[in-house]
Amino acid sequence: MANGNGRVGLRERLTQAGDHIRTSQVWSSIFRPGSPFRAGYTDSPRNRSYVIMNNVLYHLHPVKVKRHAVRLSYTLCLGGLSFFLFILLTITGIFLMFYYRPTSPQAYLDIQALATDVAFGQLVRNLHRWGAHLMVLTVFLHMARVFYHGAYKPPREFNWVVGIVLLTLTLLLSFTGYLLPWDQLALWAVTVGSNMGAYAPVVGDQVSFALIGGVQITPDTLLRWYVLHVLFLPFIIVVFMAVHFWRVRKDGGISGPL
């Protein structure tokens, strides 16, 4: 359509370009049938099902859930937020890995440099730290929520156990990350914390030795905990999270209503 000047307006051109893209083969190969981004999407029960079914989200959510389950007051989104915080921590953590060397004294200097030399470095570090504390909190509250709803009862007993493993792994992830800034706070908090493990009967000394890589915390401990923090524990926790989410679906979806 032409405007007063007999020329095609910008808005028209953009609309045409948008239509052209959305009907292209590339676009429709990315967005599967039912996707709201696909050309000709209409809000119908069929498409509402397809949005989930034809989406990677189908691994997390069924097409339909019980009505009480979508009420914010039932779950408070705690489990979902824990998972989201884990993703956020992964992203910010990868960012931090670009600027961090797990050696002494470079570790401390790199953390300092985040605040001065790296664009958004301090912000990302803050997000990583506060997000980690928040995740410990949401995981714990999620556990309490599940308990008060009696959601650990059959057939969900095993998923509760998996949840306890996830809680432990979350604490370990937080604890191993605590040492990495290599400042006085990190060093002595980890010293106090890991000294407790040394009191374990029979195997205490061995556990302590394996964890901190020696009889006391040294720069070697830094490397060890760094690997645990960025590779080993995330790998383990992802495996357990996969089982956890899968069992939620297999055990009949979210529990309740009360």
Partner: peptide, 11 residues
């Protein structure tokens, strides 16, 4: 709020 960073680790 900035994440805390104290002095360099001192054994």
């Amino acid at each position: 709020v900035d994440a805390p960073l104290l002095e360099f680790a001192n054994f």
